Computed example of a mutant assay.
Amino acid sequence: MKSRRDFLQRAAASALALPFLSSFKTEQYNPEAYGKQYQGPILRVAIMGLGSYGSRVAEAMKDCKQAKLTGVISGTPSKIKDWQSKYSIPEKNCYNYENFDNIKNNPDIDAVYVITPNALHHDQVIRVAKAGKHVICEKPMAINAQEGQQMVDACKKANVKLLVGYRMHFEPKTLEIVRMRKDGEFGKILFFQGLSGFTIGDPNQWRLNKQLAGGGAMMDIGIYSINGARYMVGEEPIWVTAQETKNNPQKFKAGVDETIQFQLGFPGGAVSSCLSTYSMNSLDRFFLNGEKGYAELQPSTGYGPIKGRTHRGELDQPHVTHQTVQMDEMAGIILQGKQPIVPVDGEEGVKDMKIIDAIYQAVQSGKKVELKL
């Protein structure tokens, strides 16, 4: 398997996308509302980085009601030409990495979705903010918390919004578990387990390049278990311990983690045990345990359909293409000030980066690292 994208795409092979409900909330799902006309403002989006995931987002946006693809930014002229033809994008809305600052003069673009290698996010997001456009940044938002905070500060200074591509924050079964936890249906939360991993392929890809990726499996797939622990438990962790295993140092060179087990402690007493790896397949599972019940998602973060159950039975919320929901909901956040059930702002991304920084610190020191998020 070549990459996380391939892993998630394979998990999505049987998915059937439904039309998007613009006002969707898990606890208020109304099948009759599907397909209704949307009369509100449209978020006009340029995608930066026209790789496999950028293509997935573009395809999903065809079904959006509140967001529309209107521009592209790429360093590959042939990709720009292909996207122009496929998505009817005018020449004046096409940019490369040298001239995209000129979007500041383009009224056809309200926001840029940055989908490039991790180490490029910091400078690109800041440039977009200086151009006066809102930013959606794919996760991880940066390669460390310091860079992430600089991105947040730059967007605040420019008076633009910064969102991070946390598509699972809008996923129906995930939100149903969050609702049940908030309503006390699991009782006191005791334990969370997150398993995130697959066997990565091409050893020459950018995800195994420390300079571009900022790390290894933890940056790419482990962040799902980090973020999932936070929204499933419903608290911010206060300490972390971690252990690294590296069986293939030729493929996973210095600074590129192969497998890390990590543990998080929460102020209410709950603990989590998580695994992040590039060397094992079939790892995509969340499990939440409380005094009164439990919840399980497997697959938990693939493109869908997500499958889940709780002590009350199977979860049957509908599958909707994740990126379609994400982009419509983010349009509502940017243009209408909507408040998501689980945050997707830059501050949310910085918290995950602080935990990743602490995990790497714990691996190196072998000691428990205190967290202050």
Rank of each mutant, 00 (worst) to 15 (best):
I238K: 09
G234Y: 06
H319Y: 15
E235N: 08
R230T: 14
G313V: 08
R285E: 08
S279A: 15
Q317E: 13
F262M: 04
F287S: 11
E291V: 13
I223P: 01
Q298P: 00
I260H: 00
G313A: 07
M219A: 11
G234A: 08
A270R: 02
F287H: 11
Y224R: 01
G304Q: 03
G290I: 07
E296L: 15
G290N: 05
Q261M: 09
A295R: 03
N281D: 15
R285I: 10
S300A: 15
H322P: 14
L288P: 01
Y231A: 09
K292S: 08
V320W: 01
E244V: 06
G302C: 08
G293I: 09
N227Q: 13
T301V: 13
G265L: 08
T245I: 15
G293N: 11
M218R: 01
T241N: 10
T245D: 09
T321G: 10
G222N: 07
I223T: 05
T277D: 01
K246W: 00
F252Y: 13
R230P: 04
M232Y: 09
S279F: 03
M218A: 04
W239E: 13
F252Q: 08
Q243S: 14
I260P: 06
R312W: 02
T301F: 15
N248R: 11
Q323W: 12
L264C: 09
Y294P: 01
M232V: 08
Y303R: 01
M218T: 10
F286P: 02
G313R: 12
L315G: 02
I260T: 06
Y224G: 01
